[in-house]
């Protein structure tokens, strides 16, 4: 463990961390561009097309604009907490990338380098913990704003995330019963040799997907920032890059949850109908990464597609869906999975 300090190991991990963080930031940046472009296309518009060819430089321009905006910190607000809020939102958003297997091992400088920052054997629980921490950024920021709309947004976000975490956890339990492991890496390896988990857990995936929408505060569950009733929700009082952090955190969350869903249910970096072992290791790792990214892009598109299709829920509808529909459904799914596994162990006899 930590006792044996291997310098090359540390450098390798540091490089990986930097790459993952940078990649999440860049992807989040381009997710904002994608969001605007997709929204435009779905509404028969053109979308950003001024900055650079096809508006490709638009996120850079947006970022620069946010940087140079005036910073406003409201009077009476706790200044420290006001800054802590967006920082925590950003931190927790980035952290979940630590346990995701981005690809198989690559062979480089005579070393086998795993494309995963940490293969902890409670990987999925780690993701879960990070997700549950994500609400603090919103709550602290909203409370420190000293604004009733912000506070409303924060409270909504908190109760929404807590409610949907339950269903998410239960749907995950069913998945864990199938795979028998909590390590994301092992799950991917299992799916490489067998079938993807979506075929074993279609209902579980649906529940997980809905909960992921809720956890990321995306439409149709974006009540925490419902602009027509709460102005901007929890980030009403925020300006400049602190607002940028909140918006960025949302997109990073979206990216990370897409990666998690791709890894859990769609084979991660697995390329379907291809036996990876037959080909060169490094190339396969690269293609695996690209396969993962393709799946992720599909998911991000789904997120945006849904955003521009389904209108926002009312708050009581949201709670009803969470507590009265999703949790019983997830419990049913769990029981069904358990029963089927038992039957299978008994060779399909009672």
């Amino acid at each position: 463990m930590l006792l044996a300090i291997d310098l090359a190991f540390i450098i390798e991990k540091l490089v990986l961390i930097v790459i993952v963080v940078m990649a999440s930031l860049v992807i989040a940046m381009y997710a904002t561009y994608g969001e605007r472009k997709i929204a435009a296309i779905l509404q028969d518009r053109r979308g950003p097309n001024r900055a650079g060819p096809f508006g490709i430089l638009q996120p850079v321009a947006d970022g620069l604009k946010l940087f140079f905006k005036e910073e406003i910190i409201p009077d009476f607000s706790s200044k420290f907490l006001f800054i802590l809020g967006p920082s925590m939102a950003m931190l927790t958003a980035i952290m979940a990338g630590a346990v995701v297997p981005w690809g198989n091992q690559i062979h480089f400088f005579n070393r086998d380098i795993s494309l995963q920052i940490a293969d902890v054997n409670v990987g999925i629980l780690f993701v879960f913990a990070v997700v549950s921490m994500g609400v603090y950024g919103i709550m602290i920021g909203s409370w420190a704003s000293n604004n009733k709309y912000s506070l409303m947004g924060g409270l909504r976000a908190a109760s929404q995330i807590i409610s949907y975490e339950l269903a998410m956890g239960i749907s995950l339990i069913a998945l864990l019963m199938v795979t028998g492991t909590l390590s994301l890496k092992e799950m991917v390896v299992q799916q490489q040799t067998g079938y993807w988990n979506i075929f074993y857990q279609p209902l579980g995936f649906l529940i997980f997907l809905i909960c992921a929408f809720a956890e990321c505060n995306r439409t149709p569950f974006d009540l925490a920032e419902a602009e027509n009733e709460l102005i901007g929700g929890y980030h009403t009082e925020y300006s400049s890059m602190k607002l940028g952090f909140y918006l960025f955190a949302e997109y990073i969350n979206m990216f990370v949850s897409s990666v998690i869903m791709a890894t859990l249910f769609f084979g991660g970096y697995d390329i379907p109908f291809l036996n990876e072992a037959n080909y060169d290791q490094n190339w396969m790792a690269l293609f695996g990464l690209m396969a993962l990214m393709t799946k992720v892009v599909c998911f991000i598109f789904l997120f945006m597609w849904v955003r521009w299709t389904i209108p926002r829920f009312r708050y009581d509808q949201l709670m009803n869906l969470g507590w009265r529909v999703l949790i019983p459904l997830a419990l049913f799914n769990m029981l069904l999975t358990g029963a089927l596994i038992l039957f299978k162990q008994n060779n399909w006899h009672f």
């Binding site: 409670v122 629980l125 780690f126 879960f128 913990a129 549950s132 921490m133 609400v135 603090y136 709550m139 409370w143 908190a158 995330i161 807590i162 975490e165």
Partner: peptide
């Protein structure tokens, strides 16, 4: 991890 999920993630959110 359970300590973080249960205490930091759920109980303290309730307190807050």
């Amino acid at each position: 991890i359970v300590n973080i999920i249960v205490y930091a993630g759920a109980i303290m959110v309730l307190f807050l």
